[in-house]
């Protein structure tokens, strides 16, 4: 680097910074929409939410006490129907599974404990590899992407 280069770089680094008018900040802030302070901004919605939760809970408890038999009937009917639906779903899935062409060979392969362990281990490794691959796919690029398109 020549003496002139050095002198230019030194002079560039020592160039003064300039200040705007003393009223600059006031001028800026006069034209900025300052949000309401957080406490004032969030007080009303929070209070309204809390009040509605308390009122709902109270109304619900009162109605339940006054209509106990009807409520029990609904719960029993709902739980019986849910149980039937879940059991039916399990049976459908199991039937479909056993009807698959690969099911019998797989069951025969896994009939000995050693091979069962091998199968489980292989499945776990495959699952972990799939997770790693998915994570790589979903990771955003490491280089920051400029975002202010003003």
């Amino acid at each position: 680097m020549t003496q002139l280069d050095r002198a230019v770089l030194t002079a560039l680094a020592s160039l003064p910074t300039y200040a705007p008018k003393p009223t600059f900040a006031d001028g800026v802030l006069a034209q900025v929409r300052t949000p309401e302070p957080m406490a004032a901004r969030t007080a009303w919605p929070r209070l309204a939410l809390a009040a509605s939760v308390v009122v709902s809970l109270g109304a619900s408890a009162a109605w339940s006490l006054l209509n106990r038999d009807q409520l029990l009937g609904w719960i029993q009917s709902f739980s019986a129907e849910t149980g039937r639906t879940v059991w039916l779903g399990v049976r459908v899935v199991a039937t479909n599974l056993t009807a698959q062409p690969w099911y019998t060979p797989l069951r025969e392969f896994a009939s000995s404990p050693g091979r069962l362990v091998l199968l489980l281990g292989g499945s776990l490794i495959l699952y972990a590899a799939a997770l790693v691959a998915l994570r790589r796919l979903l990771t955003p690029p490491s280089r920051p992407v400029p975002h202010a398109n003003w």
Partner: peptide, 17 residues
């Protein structure tokens, strides 16, 4: 962002020059 005007003023002070 929480609405502190002092913070707004501080940001301007830091970068105005």
């Amino acid at each position: 962002r929480k609405g502190s005007e002092t913070a707004y003023r501080e940001l301007v002070r830091r970068y105005e020059r």
